[in-house]
């Protein structure tokens, strides 16, 4: 054959290549590729999990934001309600306080009147005693007797004069 082409040698080389191809495929190519594929799947799974977690987080965030928005409204509503309740309570408290104050005032007045009446009554007795004492003192004092004597004299004098004229 030209160029020393030898069919037997070609077949021998083919056999070599076949052994090499099958050997490398089974020993190295397949296990390494399998490992790489496994890792790729593992990363894909992780990515999917991360994506799911991210989506869930986004969803939760949305829910929370919605809840927050509704909570603001709820808070405003509660504030309004609390304000109304406070107003009602305040009015009731004021009303009660006024009633109580009126009661206290009435009691105080009543009590004061009673005290006043009692004081007046007590003072009447005291005045009477005082007047009696004063009268007694006045009667018993010498000046008064002189004045009384003079008064009586004057009165007698005046009676005599009126008789003389007659």
């Amino acid at each position: 054959m030209p160029l020393n082409i030898d069919w037997q040698q070609i077949l021998l080389h083919l056999l070599n290549l076949l052994i090499l191809g099958v050997g490398l495929y089974l020993i190295l190519y397949k296990p390494v590729k399998k490992f790489m594929q496994k890792r790729e799947e593992s990363y894909a799974e992780r990515e999917e999990k991360t994506g799911d977690a991210l989506r869930e987080a986004e969803q939760r965030k949305g829910e929370y934001e919605q809840k927050l928005a509704s909570a603001d409204e709820e808070i405003a509503e509660l504030k309004k309600q609390a304000s109304a309740e406070t107003e009602t309570l305040r009015a009731a408290t004021l009303r009660d306080a006024q009633a109580e104050a009126e009661d206290i005032l009435a009691d105080a007045r009543d009590k004061a009147k009673r005290e006043h009446d009692k004081m007046i009554a007590d003072i009447g007795d005291d005045i009477r005693d005082l007047v009696s004492d004063m009268a007694e003192k006045a009667v018993m004092s010498p000046g008064v007797n002189e004045a009384y004597e003079q008064f009586l004299n004057e009165a007698e004098k005046g009676e005599e004069e009126s008789d003389g004229k007659d």
Partner: peptide
């Protein structure tokens, strides 16, 4: 080198 033999080159080419 194995492929400096034309028989090896023919084997690889045909394979």
């Amino acid at each position: 080198a194995p492929l400096s033999d034309i028989n090896a080159a023919i084997a690889l080419g045909f394979l």
